Simulated scan of single mutants.
Amino acid sequence: MADLQDEPHSVGIGAEDLPAPAAAVAAGALDRAVALLAVHPVADGCNTLVWTLNQRPYHDIETSDTGVDTDIPRLRAGGVGAQFWSLLVPSARAHENATGDQVLSDTLDQIDTALTLMRRYPDSLCLALSADDMADARNRGRIASFLGPVPGSTLTDSLGALRAFHALGVRSLAPAGAPWAQEELTAFGHEVVREANRLAILLDLTDCPPAVACRLAGASKAPVIISNTAAASLNPHPGNVTDEVLAALREANGLAMVTFDTARTGDSLHAVADHLDHVRAIAGPHGVGLGATFGTGPGHPRPTGLTDPSGYPRLIAELLERGWPESEVALLTWGNAQRVVRDAEFTARAAGHRR
C-alpha cells in the first residue's frame, strides 16, 4: 500500500485496553488484530460527533463520558488513525423541509465546531487535507481528521460555495437530495462533479437512490465513496446499498464503508462481519471500508461488542478468524480509504494540467 514504507508510531492500543466482551473472541486473533491496527489503523468514514457536541454543553473528549460514544481514549483504544467528521445536520437530511440558506448556515456552524475541536486537542487531532496528511498524522501518533461530507443541497446554481468549502478544508460532498442529483444529473450537476474532481473533493453517495449512485459513479473521474451503508442483499433497509451499486463502485474503484447501525446491519458483531463479507465479495477487497457512524449520545442502538470505537479490535479479530488475509484487513482498515483520497488528488492534478 502507498506510503507504508515509513514505520508508523503505534496508535497506543493493547489487548489489555479492550473492554470485557473481547473475551468472546479467540485470544490469538485478538492479539493479531491489535498488532495489525498498530500499523494499519482504522480510517473511519463517518462520525457525527460534531453535530452531537453542537447540541450539548461543553464536553471534554479527552476523558470518557457516557454522554457520548466517542472520545479520544476510546478512539485510541480502538486503533482509529483517521476520521471523517460528518458535517451533515438534520435539516440537511430532511432537505425538503429546510431552505438552502438554513442548510448552508447549519453547515458553516458544523465546520466551525469541527475546526474548534481540532484546535482544542492538537496533541490528538489534526486537520487532514490529503493522503500525505493521513500518513503524517499516523506517523506522529495523531488522528487525521477530514471534514465532510457537506450536503450537496448547499450548492444552488453556483460553484462558489463548493470552492469556499474546499478553502475551509472540506474534502467530501454528499449529493443525496440535491436538486441537481435526482433521477438525471442536471447540467449543473455535471459541473459539480467536474469541479469536485478538480478540487479533490470526494463524492459521498450515501443515501443516493441506486440509479443516481450509479450515474454519479460513472460521471466522476475520481473514485466515489459511500461513507456509511450496509448490504441491501442481507437487509433491505433504504439506506443500504444494492449489489448493482456495489458492482458500479468496483468498476469505478470506489469504496463502500460499512456502518455499525443495528437498523442496517443487525444487532451483533457477527452480523456486521456478514455485511463486510458481502461487500468485499461484490465490490472487491479494494472496495470495502469502515464507516461506523459513531458520535451519538446514549440510547442509539449498536451491535453487541461494537457500542463505541474501542470495539474495532474485536471486529478485526472476527474477520481474521473468518479467514480474511491480513493484507486485505489492512486494506479494509486503512489502505482503501487512503487510496481513494490519493486517487482523488491524482485526478485533480490531471484536471489542472488539462486546464
Score class of each variant (00 low, 15 high):
Arg302Pro: 06
Thr63Ala: 15
Leu129Pro: 00
Val11Tyr: 03
Arg314Ile: 04
Ile13Ser: 12
Arg339Lys: 10
Val341Glu: 02
Val341Ser: 01
Ala82His: 01
Ala137Pro: 02
Asp6Gly: 12
Gly299Ile: 01
Asp243Ala: 10
Ser145Gly: 11
Leu202Asn: 02
Gly14Asn: 11
Leu36Glu: 06
Asp123His: 10
Pro325Lys: 10
Pro285Tyr: 04
Phe146Met: 11
His40Val: 03
Thr186His: 08
Gly284Ser: 08
Leu203Ile: 05
Leu87Gln: 02
Gln5Val: 11
Arg322Ser: 12
Arg93Asp: 14
Asp109Asn: 13
Glu7Asp: 14
Leu125Pro: 01
Arg314Asp: 08
Ala92Asp: 07
Pro236Glu: 11
Gln102Phe: 05
Ala178His: 05
Ala252Glu: 09
Gly289Ala: 09
Arg142Cys: 12
Val288Ile: 12
Ser130Ile: 04
Thr70Asn: 10
Ala271Cys: 11
Val288Cys: 13
Ala181Pro: 00
Glu191Met: 13
Asp136Gly: 12
Ala222Cys: 09
Asp277Pro: 04
Thr52Tyr: 06
Asp308Val: 00
Gly299Phe: 07
Val193Met: 10
Ala137Asp: 06
Arg342Gly: 06
Leu185Met: 12
Leu159Arg: 03
Trp324Val: 07
Asp274Met: 10
Ala178Phe: 07
Ala348Pro: 03
Gly297Thr: 03
His40Ala: 13
Ala22Ser: 15
Val50Ala: 11
Thr242Phe: 08
Ala330Met: 05
Arg140Gly: 12
Val89Ser: 15
Gln5His: 14
Ala256Tyr: 01
Arg314Val: 04
Glu184Gly: 13
Cys46Gly: 12
Ala181Ile: 00
Phe84Met: 14
Val50Thr: 08
Arg280Asp: 09
Asp274Asn: 14
Glu16Tyr: 12
His275Met: 03
Phe84Arg: 09
Ala164Asp: 13
Leu159Glu: 08
Thr333Val: 05
His278Thr: 07
Ala256Asn: 01
Gly287Met: 05
Arg74Thr: 12
Thr154Lys: 03
Ala114Thr: 01
Glu345Leu: 04
His59Ala: 15
Ala292Ile: 04
Pro238His: 11
Leu306Ser: 04
Leu234Ile: 07
Ala230Asp: 06
Val340Tyr: 00
Trp334Ala: 08
Met257Gly: 07
Ala178Arg: 02
Gly169Ser: 10
Gly148Phe: 00
Ser145Met: 09
Cys214Ser: 13
Asp31Ile: 03
Gln5Ile: 13
Ala20Pro: 05
Ser124Ile: 00
Asn240Met: 10
Arg142Ile: 04
Glu16Thr: 14
Thr52His: 11
Thr154Trp: 00
Asp65Val: 04
Ala82Asn: 02
Gly141Arg: 02
Glu96Arg: 15
Ala38Leu: 09
Arg76Gln: 10
Glu251Val: 06
Leu332Trp: 02
Asp207Val: 04
Ser153Cys: 14
Val192Asp: 01
Val212Thr: 14
Ala248Tyr: 03
Thr52Gln: 14
Arg74Trp: 06
Arg198Gln: 12
Leu246Phe: 08
Ile72Gln: 10
Val80Pro: 02
